[in-house]
Design a binder for these strands. Structure first.
Lengths: 183, 183
DNA sequence: TCGTTACCGAACACAGTGTTCAATTACATT
DNA sequence: AATGTAATTGAACACTGTGTTCGGTAACGA
């Protein structure tokens, strides 16, 4: 990849990140992004088809850091947390999110973020799916598996939103407890 | 209220309803609404400050029919369903929603509907709050009451969305069962 | 060094929003 | 039925934001 491409791409991502910490995604304009990144308008559209695609690629990079790391560490320690690996997975996820490397939490707490929540949900669903232990109880309760999976994912997301909305006063451990109690 | 006002207001609501069955709220333009309602642009803005306020007032009328009726019937039969009034309330709500009088379900299933979900959630929260029986278990589980209430509301909404998304094949009774099982 | 490629920037067409205003029409009241 | 009031019209307007175009410039990789 051309060095120039890398630079502008990074500049756009940086400007985008900075803007995300200030305002909702939907209120951010392309004009603001290219001003912040100091690139031409045409350059932006040479890199990203629309603003939505920028978010999409932004999320992919973001989730790559979060969910892939989660999957890896999960695999690595699976034998340790075998008895309740699900607990460790979600705890790690909450801990990771609390670090707030990028502005993932701003995205989560802001309204009008269906796009982002969609991407987040997809990744989370894949993670949930790989932890079959939780699905055992689905059969006990005689629920459709799709319903049960959806419930876990949306409960996690809602828990996260609640946590952020209330200032993240609780520790990741406590939130994980709450989450597991209601699930 | 002037007859002309009532007529245009109704015409706008009708056009809005018709459009909602075809496309997402955010994709609907003021131009389309006034074309459908056959009113002047200035007239629209004389009635509604913005498109968002149109949705707001639309929701208020809609929820008036649903939640108020629910509260009334709830009060009326409270002594009958005393032992598990919560069950009856949510069942009635699901039944009512399945009728789909207006396009409430289209609004629910479409993306980018944070505004609508917000109004819906507020009404639902008030309803949940008035049924204290559910909160008993919150203390047992030692969860923050705000967390617990939020969980019930969002689980109901997510259940509803799941139901709609999957074609509403299940009966209201079955969905109520699912809902109560996971809660 | 040289051909390629990204970037610039300014202009452009387009769509949608919300406002303004004078002219018109329907309304409620007497 | 007459009258003053108030809603509606329609067309124009300024404004913001989107996405495209294109010739010129400069950085890049080989």
């Amino acid at each position: 990849m051309d060095r120039r491409q890398r630079k502008t791409r990074e500049a756009i991502f940086n400007a985008f990140t900075k803007l995300l910490s200030k305002k909702d995604f939907n209120r951010i304009t392309v004009g603001e992004i290219i001003d912040g990144a100091d690139v031409g308008r045409a350059t932006f559209y040479a890199h990203f088809e629309t603003k939505d695609y920028l978010l999409k690629e932004f999320c992919e990079e973001l989730f790559c850091h979060i969910f892939d790391a989660e999957n890896d560490s999960g695999h690595g320690h699976r034998h340790i947390f075998d008895c309740d690996s699900s607990k460790s997975v979600f705890l790690h996820l909450f801990q990771h999110l609390k670090k707030n490397d990028n502005n993932i939490l701003n995205l989560l707490s802001s309204p009008n973020n269906e796009l982002f929540l969609g991407y987040f949900g997809n990744n989370l669903e894949a993670l949930v799916e790989s932890h079959l232990s939780l699905f055992e109880s689905a059969k006990e309760k005689e629920l459709p598996p799709g319903f049960w999976k959806n419930h876990i994912v949306s409960t996690f997301t809602e828990t996260l939103k609640w946590w952020v909305r209330n200032g993240m006063k609780e520790s990741a451990e406590v939130i994980t407890e709450y989450f597991l109690k209601v699930v």
